[in-house]
Design a protein around this nucleic acid. Structure first.
Length: 737
DNA sequence: TACTGTGGCCGTGGGA
DNA sequence: TCCCACGGCCAC
């Protein structure tokens, strides 16, 4: 590392590498308590702390409380740092600033303020498996802790997936179970407490049951009870999902129900419930015990040992999900001035804000205010050809936007100190190092380097988006636009070169191109050579890579295509071909039709399969799992007219839940659980035909398409339709019109 | 002050 | 019947 890189690394990671800090909390009005994990347990340290805010010069004379002020360097609008005499004064000023609508910068958490000030961070020098994580799970009578007969049957817990323990409702009274859990937690002294849906179920249930015995969940490192916050939101990709926040002094709460949603960026999982998620990820233990939610009461009465095994399996599965999804957040926490719980629930824009604020304030520099939002162009997309292609190569520009920012030195205009691009550069370099270490190592080391590597990747990928983030202190829409327009130039130039080399470009999207290579390019090596020749023409620091080769491709619409791998696997891409919302029978239909069109000799006749499925609909032979679709409950569900029928079907459901519904013969929607063999066949036939429309680009003429996928209604004579000949005119098959 | 970005396809339902 | 706005989900 050069001297300059070391300097920027200090800005990026904070200047104080003190290892082993596992928690930081406010202590009284002017103090901070730091918990260090050492070889013989956790040690406490108390330090003095002055809460602060940064405001603009005009605001200072009007502040409602006396503060000591410092003028910061530079031209940022927020150039006066105010140090508060105590936390109460800070809170007064903070509330006043919000109320008055004045611009300011601070952190609502004293711990985060301390971490920014000190340059320290959590978990430095320790790895994920060093941290003590407790998994907990409860089995209860019913889901509502307030109703008659509600009670906790079992509490199970484990430490890092081991030493599982059970507190049984037939051996302990309910309050004693709660006391036993608290004692177990205090003696194991975990840094992290984990559960699946712990925020919205286990904690509220436990708190309510405890309240009935005048107990509190005294789980804090200082013995304080779990504090319930208001409704907060966790960020998972583009979605922001509300939950009942809670905090524990000196520890971090992690909900694997949330973490697995953040982990599932590709949207592969159809359910985020514990058992389906574990199964879909291929992580189920073969000897795992299952008890359905509705059977828990019966199992408690008649098969208690089995229920206990099931409950233990549940906490072990919580650990499995945590080991999968949490390391990325854990290793980000080393870098960022905030705690694990906040890293694991917060959005990426705020994390880059953290980095920039810490870098500027540690140098005594002023902070700019966000520029007003405006739209700007994004990636270049073009559907150049539709139809069936073979063979197909995909190439893409590696890390397009980060590379452009590094190569062209594109940074916010307000970044006077020039920190943005060097921080991105250090992260990029460190990520490559970590990737190499990951490849060179095995076991726990490998898992650690993977965690580090992916945590860097998450931050790297956030830098571009930050430029267009409306609440980013250093946002810059002009800079964001320069990045995307440069990307458009680069990819369009690559298409020109590919075509001039005899390739036929099929689809272009932002940083990648699918193309048919020329006839003399048929091996991986020759494809790579072709891509490498194009790559050589690009600016230094911009690399084009071979990113996949396929036996076949169906190009249907922009961002909607299917791929046939050389190993025979079929992949569907795009909202029209794979969506969590589509009915299962339609998903199956799409998949099968794609296979039939990609390899017609292997998979049979599309027309016959279509008519078979239509017949099953007419005969009512599709089950509830086939005809129901998954709808996500959002803020809009109960507001928007476009989701009125859904709102009626799922009245009272929580935001963020996913509910299986189907359309009834009367046109209303109903929950799949209320299925009564009354699915709307006309609707299903129409849906089937709509889905067949996706394949229209594969047919040269309307006649051919209509012959393959004729319109079918409940009154259609399928026998006649099946017997019809392909040479006939379209109108002959439109028997119902 | 606990909201990374744009581009695009498709279904719904209201209104012309 | 067509057009349009909007919401959800997806590709990148």
């Amino acid at each position: 590392m050069t001297e300059q890189e070391a300097e920027y690394a200090g800005d990026l990671f904070g200047v104080d590498p003190t290892p082993g800090i596992v928690a930081v909390e406010r202590a009284g009005d002017r103090g901070i308590r730091i918990y260090h994990r050492t070889h013989d347990g956790v040690r406490e340290q108390l330090v003095e702390f002055t809460p602060w805010l940064v405001v603009d010069a005009e605001t200072v004379p009007n502040l409602p409380r006396q503060m000591s002020t410092t003028l910061l360097d530079g031209d940022g609008r927020l150039r006066v740092r105010c140090d508060a005499p105590n936390w109460a004064a800070w809170l007064d000023v903070y509330r006043w600033l919000r109320e008055a609508g004045r611009p300011f910068a601070t952190f609502t958490s004293a711990a985060d303020q301390y971490l920014v000030d000190s340059g320290r961070g959590l978990f430095r020098g320790i790895s994920f498996d060093t941290v003590v994580r407790a998994q907990i799970d409860i089995e209860t009578l019913g889901l509502d802790p307030t109703v008659e007969g509600a009670r906790i049957l079992l509490v199970t817990a484990a430490i890092n997936g081991e030493s599982a323990i059970v507190f049984r409702g037939d051996e302990l009274s309910e309050p004693d179970m709660i006391r036993a859990l608290t004692a177990w937690l205090q003696s194991n002294d975990p840094d992290v407490i984990e559960g699946h849906n712990i925020f919205n179920f286990d904690l509220p249930y436990l708190i309510e049951r405890a309240r009935r015995y005048h107990l509190e969940l005294e789980w804090g490192r200082d013995g304080s009870p779990v504090r319930v916050g208001g409704e907060q939101r966790f960020k998972a990709g583009a979605r922001s999902i509300p939950y009942n926040a809670a905090r524990i002094y000196g520890r971090h709460l992690v909900d694997t129900y949330q973490q697995i949603q953040r982990y599932d960026t590709a949207g592969q999982l159809s359910s985020y419930a514990l058992k389906p998620a574990i199964r879909a990820l291929g992580l189920a233990r073969h000897d795992r015990t299952y008890v359905a939610g509705v059977d828990i009461t019966a199992a408690w009465d008649h098969d208690r040992e089995r229920l206990i095994h099931y409950a233990i399996d549940d906490v072990l599965d919580v650990n499995v999900l945590s080991e999968l999804a949490l390391p990325t957040e854990f290793y980000q926490t080393r870098i960022l001035p905030r705690g694990l719980q906040s890293v694991a629930t917060g959005g990426p824009g705020e994390k880059i804000n953290d980095l920039m604020l810490r870098a500027y304030l540690s140098r005594g520099y002023s902070i700019p205010t966000p520029g007003p939002p405006r739209g700007y162009p994004g990636g270049y997309t073009e559907l150049r050809r539709t139809g069936r292609f073979s063979p197909v190569v995909k190439c893409d520009i590696e890390s397009l936007y980060p590379s452009i920012m590094l190569v062209d030195d594109i940074r916010p205009a307000s970044d006077e100190l020039g920190m943005f691009v060097p921080m991105l550069g250090v992260l990029t370099k460190r990520r490559l190092q970590a990737k190499r270490r990951e490849q060179q190592s095995t076991g726990h080391d490998r898992a650690q380097w993977r965690g580090i590597q992916t945590s860097f990747k998450v931050l790297i990928n956030s830098f571009y988006g930050y430029l267009g983030y409306s609440r980013g202190y250093f946002n810059d829409y002009d800079a964001a636009e320069r990045v995307t327009l440069r990307g458009q130039d680069l990819i369009q130039n690559i298409v020109v070169q590919l075509e001039s080399n005899g390739s036929r470009a099929i689809e272009v999207d932002t940083d990648g191109v699918f193309f048919e290579p020329p006839a003399d390019v048929r091996t991986l090596a020759s494809e790579e050579a072709l891509v490498a020749r194009v790559s050589e023409t690009l600016p230094t620091g911009i690399n084009l890579a071979h990113d996949g080769r396929f036996l076949g491709m169906l190009s249907l619409r922009l961002k909607n295509y299917a791929l046939l791998g050389y190993d025979g696997t079929v992949t569907l891409k795009g909202s029209g071909l794979r969506s969590r919302r589509e009915e299962r029978f339609l998903g199956q239909f799409l998949h099968d039709e794609v296979a039939r069109h990609l390899a017609p000799d292997q998979f049979g006749d599309p027309r016959q399969a279509y008519l078979d499925l239509a017949e099953r609909i007419i005969d009512g032979r599709l089950g509830v799992d086939d005809v129901s679709r998954i709808e996500t409950i959002t803020d809009q569900t109960f507001i928007s007219p476009a989701t009125r029928r859904l709102a009626e079907a799922v009245h009272g459901e929580r935001i963020g839940e996913r509910v299986a519904v189907y359309e009834r013969a009367d046109g209303s929607l109903a929950r799949a659980s209320a299925f009564d063999d009354d699915a709307n066949s006309s609707y299903l036939l129409r849906r089937l035909r709509d889905f067949a429309e996706r394949f229209r680009p594969l047919y040269a003429t309307d006649q051919e398409f209509h012959y393959t996928f004729p319109i079918v209604t409940q009154r259609t004579d399928l026998a006649t339709l099946r017997a019809a000949r392909p040479t006939s005119q379209l109108t002959l098959f439109d028997l119902t019109n």
